[in-house]
Amino acid sequence: MAFHHFISLAVLLACLPAANAAESAASAPADAIWALSLPARENIDFRGQVNFDKAGQEPGTMLYPAPGVAGFIVALATHAAVVKGKMKEQRSEIEADADRILVPFRKSLDTFSYGELAERAFPAASGVPWLGSGSRPQSGWLIASSPVFYMTQDQSALIVDNTVSVFQAGSELPVYTNTVRVVSRAVEVENEAVFWQWNGGVRLREASAALFRASVEIARAHALAPVAAAAGAQRTFRYLEGKNDAVERAEPISEQCGRALVRNLRGWLMSIPLKHARPAAPGCEAPGSAPAL
């Protein structure tokens, strides 16, 4: 696994509930040194949100009867190969169609690097030099991060799926590996494309960095102080992906400022904007046109 960029991280927990911050502090030294690595490629992986529910649902090649057991096995294998090929082709077509919503932002995204993402997400560390590909910090902890960003099809919200592995300095094996998904609130604006493209796409970059920062901080906190699963605690969460309803069966971890942090059935950690949130507590930012989480 080769990584190109490293930047030191401040111990920042602004996006996490206080209870999680306390648990993390109890497990890590107060002066722990953190470093972040990102993929070796320059351009950020940014895609249109895609729905694969219809993939493979169209009638495929009919499996005709074949004489004998051997003939049946050959026919079955051939049918499986054809279906797999059709599904792969369908997935590619669906992904290409979903990515069309990014056309207005392509010029900005083509110049949006992982280095800029890290510096926007952790501005206090922007003066720290980058280390070479494959390097490891001499002390402290390393978060190896591979974020993939999505824009919802209504262009009103962003999502990051950040796959992370946490290493202690000197160790080749991660102490923690997981995927963290963070879904932003939808922006309430007249024209989403114009909103994100303002000033050369700065809003799109800032919102992406905010999502990335939140995902890293969630991963850091739970890597060192994982919350034990509670038997039978799963429930159905109704939340928003852009302006559309979404549902997730998951185990609740915390809820704050109209968002829930949950562990889904795959074990992923998810920070989601609840559809029916409790009244905002003092200090919570009110929903508006800003690209807030």
Rank of each mutant, 00 (worst) to 15 (best):
A19M: 03
E251H: 09
E23R: 13
R106A: 09
A22H: 08
S254P: 01
V83P: 00
N162W: 06
L12G: 09
R185Y: 02
A18C: 02
Q90W: 02
R41K: 06
E188H: 13
F195N: 05
I159P: 01
W34V: 01
A246W: 10
F105T: 00
G85N: 15
V175N: 06
V189T: 07
A10R: 12
E241T: 14
M87S: 11
E217L: 05
G201F: 08
S215P: 00
E206F: 08
Q153C: 05
L102Q: 05
F46C: 03
D31F: 04
R266N: 07
V103Y: 00
S215D: 05
R41F: 03
R205K: 15
A32R: 11
I7D: 01
V247F: 11
L261E: 04
V247I: 15
A124K: 12
S126W: 01
S108K: 02
E190Y: 03
A186K: 12
V148Q: 11
A221Y: 01
K275I: 04
C284L: 07
R41D: 09
V50Q: 07
A231D: 09
R235M: 10
G170V: 13
R203C: 01
A246Y: 14
R249D: 14
E251F: 11
E172Y: 10
N162C: 07
V50N: 06
D45S: 12
A26Q: 12
A260P: 02
S146T: 14
L38V: 13
A286T: 10
H222L: 11
F3N: 09
T177C: 02
F112D: 00
A223C: 07
S8T: 14
I159T: 08
V160R: 13
E58P: 00
A228R: 08
S171I: 04
L109Q: 02
R249L: 15
H5T: 14
L204I: 04
G115T: 12
D97Q: 12
V69P: 00
P17H: 07
I253H: 07
A121L: 06
A225Q: 04
A32T: 11
W196M: 06
E116T: 11
G56N: 05
E248G: 01
S271H: 09
R238G: 03
H276P: 00
V50K: 08
I143W: 02
W198L: 12
Y239M: 07
F149V: 04
I159G: 03
V247K: 14
K84L: 12
A98F: 02
S24E: 15
A28H: 03
P59K: 15
Q197F: 04
E251A: 15
G232Y: 08
A290W: 02
R213N: 11
R238D: 13
V216C: 10
E119P: 00
A22P: 00
L38A: 10
L16E: 13
N199L: 13
L36T: 10
D97F: 08
N264M: 04
P291M: 05
Q234M: 14
G288M: 02
A228M: 10
A246E: 05
F149C: 03
D45Q: 12
S165W: 06
A290R: 13
C284G: 10
V183T: 15
V128M: 06
Y176K: 13
A55Y: 08
P147E: 09
A21G: 15
F3H: 07
G200F: 01
V11A: 14
R185L: 06
P279T: 09
